[in-house]
Design a protein around this nucleic acid. Structure first.
Lengths: 335, 335
DNA sequence: TTGAAAGCGCTAACAC
DNA sequence: GTGTTAGCGCTTTCAA
């Protein structure tokens, strides 16, 4: 920076001002300095900057699983908001590993980012021992039970409710809920929501087939399970994830007897990028990942500016129904 | 750090040594210091550290598109190698935006990471103006034409060749290549490989249906195109991406007349995570993203340790055939 | 506006 | 092994 000052014939402090408070510098001086910066290929050392300034302008986000499009959406949304505030977003992937998650959090702490967004595994944030002393932390997709942190969550109960309502609205009365393990809060809540919808609809029943996970293989198993029942046992299915739905539908599809959605209408959950692209586009509940990311970033930025005593709050984002062919049948038009 | 030293009753320098060169400190002292660190909740300031040390221990990776599983795989592989060397990996997403890509690179430059991995868009790295003055940079999935940078690429020509060979080996003789635009180097090379395989097989023909992109919608259009031809025009198809293949297969599947793979065997490209999970699991060419990531990270680390005069080299990773039902039919067994 | 100077928290080289 | 000290490159007073 001294070189730049020399080259531009100004004081070192002025160069700093050009970079940080351009409005405090005469336009002409500013141009001169900028020119020198370009000519010398100068790149400001952010380590020194944040050491001296005591604050960084980057925010870190720790994602539970980059293979899950929900988290990618969250990151995308967070980035938009962060950029809007002139800050940058750096991503760390925990890859469904609690140890890595802790590591990543402390990595960001060490590098003194302005704040951290944490999108943990459903059950995984069970008291991450890394106690963020000073770094502001906002949770995404997981509620801080103790109210220690602000956070953004999707209203899973509502999502489950909407899914079941949709089927009931289509005249389905013998529902089945596919999903598990119930240890996963999100699954339990979706099921609760579906149950609530059924409870308020006389004549509608809901059975729960518990799966051991939420991916496509589990979906196939669930599909097999459905096939063991007498034909017509169910006429509507809510799956706790799109993958589950797709897997189950495949099995049902291979074994003539159950046609989707005629015999059995299916709705999934997550709005996974390929849910709309499978053979039978799957109706689903979208959690609006980008919106969650944006909201979380906003909360974090508030906290960064507001200091540690900023009121902690939890923003709840209502998921929405995205009906497709697996419930509407041919009425559904592909774009 | 001074606090820790005081608390532990040692000198400040000793605390530094405990953190950086534990072997230079007596075990007892080390434990005392660690205890104080824990008790005081001390977190080392990495900004100061890298400022003083002149080197950071984190590596940044700039990814073209987090929604593309190839890039996620690359990141995962890179992280494994980076961690193995005691360093950390931070991810930035360019989101298919050249401007963001440049921004992300300079972001990493500014924060003085030890090195940068860049996985650009196919054609997008056209002379990114950010000239990394000092920061070592290694390319992934894109070859530096000028030999300025080391890099890791998949052998696209070989991949295309293998795909076509697979179909020819199954007795298919009237092939079609789906893919485009040819502006994309990867597509052009895959096509070239397929052509090479056809050229060495007398009696086998290859037609090219050019698409305007590589996603599922383009695949559907290509499928329509195939349907306009007389039945039996083609008996084998190589698609430049899995999404393309899945889209085309869907269209063919809906319009009885073409059964996959009986009438038309299909092979895609990328080993996209859902290629194996679509209704008809799609045979594909896997680019071994994780391996590419590992190799790139290794090259970068070599360069970091070896200094700027390290020999630049390009590692080529051969993609492999992953046969599934869309070519093998019922012979293929789902796991 | 400008120039000078005091650190930010840590590493590394040096004597002890 | 341990304690001391001079910076790393920048921001930010403060007086001019």
């Amino acid at each position: 920076m001294a070189d730049v000052a020399l080259h531009a014939g100004v004081a070192l402090g002025t160069v700093s001002n050009v970079l940080n408070k351009p409005e405090k510098v005469k336009e002409l001086t500013r141009r001169k300095v900028m020119a020198s910066i370009a000519e010398l290929g100068f790149v400001r050392n952010d380590a020194a900057r944040s050491l001296a300034a005591g604050t960084s302008n980057t925010i870190g986000i720790v994602l539970a699983d980059l293979s899950n499009s929900l988290f990618v959406d969250i990151a995308r949304g967070a980035e938009a908001t962060v950029r809007q505030h002139g800050m940058n977003l750096l991503i760390a992937n925990s890859d469904v590993d609690l140890t890595k998650q802790s590591l990543n959090i402390s990595l960001f702490e060490q590098s003194r980012v302005a704040g951290v967004l944490l999108a943990p595994l459903d059950t995984a944030f069970a008291r991450t021992n890394s106690v963020l002393s000073t770094t502001p932390l906002v949770l995404v997709n997981y509620a801080s039970e103790s109210g220690t942190y602000s956070g953004v969550v999707a209203d899973e109960v509502h999502g489950g409710y909407e899914a079941a309502r949709h089927l009931i609205g289509l005249g389905r009365t013998r529902l089945v809920f596919l999903g598990g393990p119930l240890m996963l809060m999100a699954v339990a809540q979706r099921l609760a929501g579906a149950r609530a919808a059924v409870a308020e609809s006389p004549g509608v029943t809901l059975e729960h087939i518990e799966t051991r996970g939420l991916n496509m293989a589990h979906g196939r198993q669930a599909g097999q399970e459905i096939l063991t029942r007498p034909a017509g046992t169910f006429d509507g299915a809510v799956a706790a994830s799109d993958l589950l739905a797709v897997g189950a539908i495949q099995v049902l599809d291979e074994n003539a007897g159950y046609e989707v959605p005629t015999d059995l209408a299916f709705i999934g959950y997550d709005d996974n990028h390929f849910a709309s692209e499978s053979a039978i586009p799957v109706s689903t509940i979208s959690q609006h990942g980008e919106e969650m990311g944006r909201a979380a970033a906003q909360l974090l930025i508030n906290e960064i500016h507001g200091g540690p005593l900023t009121l902690k709050r939890t923003v709840v984002i209502k998921p929405d129904l995205v009906p497709r062919r697996s419930t509407l049948g041919d009425d559904w038009r592909r774009d």
